[in-house]
Computed example of a mutant assay.
Amino acid sequence: MERLKVLIVDDSRVSCSILQNILSKTNFGTCEVACSCAEAIDKYQSFKPDIVTMDMNLPDADGIECTRRIKDIDPSARILMISAMKDASLIAQGRSAGISSFLQKPVNPNELIDALMFLCQDISDKIGELKDLYVDAFVKVLQKSLFSLVGVHSEVSSHLAVGNYLDVDGIAVIIGLTGMPMGRAIVYMDHDTMRKFACVLLGKESDAELTEEEASDAVEEAANIIVGRGASTINDLHDSEMRISPPGTIAGSNIRIANFKMASFVITAETRLGNICMNIGFAEGE
């Protein structure tokens, strides 16, 4: 199971520490901690966690009201209440507000993990399906393409992306994916790797012979080839009709690309030229 993001909402530092300690030993990863309802709303919008653990007593609202406010933002939010109190009336009110499950403090680690696994099973299943059907194909294509384009061997790895943004220093080539599933691919690398890559691809003796425009154009064309090969491989494997849009390229420092509402994966190829990366995102996790 890929690591999923958890937002802990609790005004007790002790309780937060206990939950963080439990989660640190599992496949769940804590994305943030909120100590009030207002902070929980802000961090839910910023970090888009997969699941929220909710205390009942908060300084500015109770856990049920906080749940309602989160549900107003995202009706599909998965919320697990972890409170000192757990009675029939509280459970009824909580379910009415949209709380999915209830645990009582002190929380049992096994019960916590079981509850999180149950609530997030559909996310885990979908992530695994996307990885098996599409991401693994792009991993293999990236490795083969780098060898055929510039003759470099690479060690390639992939993981589920975390956060709502992709930060890039260097160059990023963005290519839309249409058909099923819809999404986008981003091929990116730092500036030094871009120039080394372009120099080899264009057969230059040194990057002193290379203009910035030539280097950017070379990476853009290579990205178009790599993503196109990936889409074609997926079409052959799954009898699908994935297509790619014309590439768009941005270059510079501190580039931030939004990654909202996507199941997104990072593929990294370690080469002698530097790290060459791809971010593959699928809209709404489809």
Rank of each mutant, 00 (worst) to 15 (best):
M180F: 14
V152R: 01
M81L: 10
M262T: 15
L142F: 09
V173G: 04
R78M: 08
G98R: 11
S253V: 06
G29E: 15
I280K: 09
C66N: 04
I234S: 01
S17L: 04
C37P: 04
N235A: 01
L112N: 05
N235E: 02
I70N: 00
I82Q: 06
L19D: 03
D114I: 10
S245I: 03
M262H: 13
V266S: 14
D136T: 10
C120V: 11
A198C: 01
S89N: 03
K126M: 14
S264I: 10
F147T: 03
L202M: 14
N275A: 15
M81V: 09
L23D: 07
C16V: 11
Q104H: 00
D60Q: 07
N235W: 01
I73A: 09
C277K: 15
R229N: 15
G274P: 09
S76Y: 02
L116E: 01
V141A: 05
G285A: 12
D55M: 04
D122M: 05
E286T: 10
A84W: 04
G163Y: 06
L58I: 09
V52I: 14
I22A: 03
I99D: 00
F265T: 10
E284P: 03
E155I: 00
P59G: 00
S216M: 11
K5G: 14
R95A: 02
G274Y: 05
P106L: 00
L166S: 07
T211R: 04
S154Q: 02
S89G: 05
H238Q: 07
V141Y: 02
E241D: 15
G29F: 11
T233F: 03
D192I: 14
Q121N: 13
A88F: 02
D42Y: 02
I22V: 15
C277G: 11
L177D: 01
G151E: 11
T178W: 04
P49N: 02
R184G: 13
D125K: 12
R229A: 09
A208G: 10
V168S: 12
D125I: 14
S216G: 07
S158A: 13
V150E: 02
V168F: 05
S240C: 06
L142N: 08
S240A: 12
V6T: 13
A77P: 05
E205G: 05
